[in-house]
């Protein structure tokens, strides 16, 4: 199974990935907290969030408003594309530790 997954991934990694363009914004997860917990992004622009999970435990980046849901394993990172979005506040949270891992994307 592991071998299959790896092979599958190798094939995928050769696929043309056509998103070099959008600006990258880094978010860190430390002690089940998002740093920064407020992420300002420009309106009507696609943005690439690079979420680094520095905790040993997994976390799930989730936002109902952004329609995003992605599990980030412990000590690893993940890429999430958001936008283009109209101005407003879009809360997100870590589903596995939602009491502390909270933040919001502020589109302005």
């Amino acid at each position: 199974m592991k071998v299959i997954l790896v092979c599958f991934g190798l094939i995928l990694s050769y696929l043309p990935v056509a998103h070099a363009g959008p600006p990258v914004i880094e978010i860190e997860i430390r002690d089940h907290l998002f740093y920064p917990d407020t992420v300002p992004i420009p309106a009507d622009t696609k943005v690439k969030l690079l979420v680094k999970n520095l905790d040993p435990t997994a976390e799930e980046f989730e936002s109902y408003e952004l329609n995003r849901e992605k599990v980030i394993a412990g000590n690893s990172e993940a890429i999430i594309f958001i936008g283009p979005l109209p101005a407003g506040e879009y809360p997100f949270f870590g589903e596995f530790f939602p009491k502390t891992a909270q933040g919001k994307v502020v589109v302005e």
Partner: peptide, 9 residues
Amino acid sequence: HEVNHASYR
């Protein structure tokens, strides 16, 4: 308000 400080919320 809710804020991050010293590794806690």
